[in-house]
Design a protein around this nucleic acid. Structure first.
Length: 107
DNA sequence: ACAGTGACTACAT
DNA sequence: AATGTAGCCACTG
């Protein structure tokens, strides 16, 4: 057991290629369903973490790319997702429910 | 030890 | 449908 953040990073790094999950789902998988915001805060620090976590695979519960502004890399969050086969329209992932990967179920 | 912070959510207007 | 409000809680200075 380590920091809450570390657990978040662990879950995020387990997200399979081409799949996405939500802040709330991660929080719930950690047994802290009400700490979805903390997951967001953790992702905010993810750029300091080694190895880097695929934070672009984490979106809000509507499949909306809420955290795209925080991406500092050369490629936008949307580009990265599209590169994994997702279709983004108006900052939202189409067929999000299909691409959704629930860590508390699949894990 | 305390107050501020936030990449969320659900509910209310 | 689109905003606004209010809980939420681990981390940081």
């Amino acid at each position: 057991m380590q920091d809450f953040y570390s657990q978040v990073y662990e879950i995020v790094s387990l997200i399979p290629y081409g799949r996405v999950t939500t802040y709330g789902a991660i929080a719930k998988a950690l047994g802290a369903a009400k700490s979805s915001r903390l997951v967001g805060v953790a992702m905010n620090h993810s750029h300091d973490v080694i190895p880097a976590v695929p934070a672009h695979r984490v979106v809000n519960r509507n499949g909306l790319l809420t955290g795209k502004h925080h991406f500092i890399g050369e490629h936008s969050m949307q580009e990265l997702l599209e590169a994994e086969g997702h279709v983004i329209t108006d900052n939202k992932i189409l067929k999000f429910e299909t691409a959704f990967w629930d860590p508390s179920i699949e894990l």
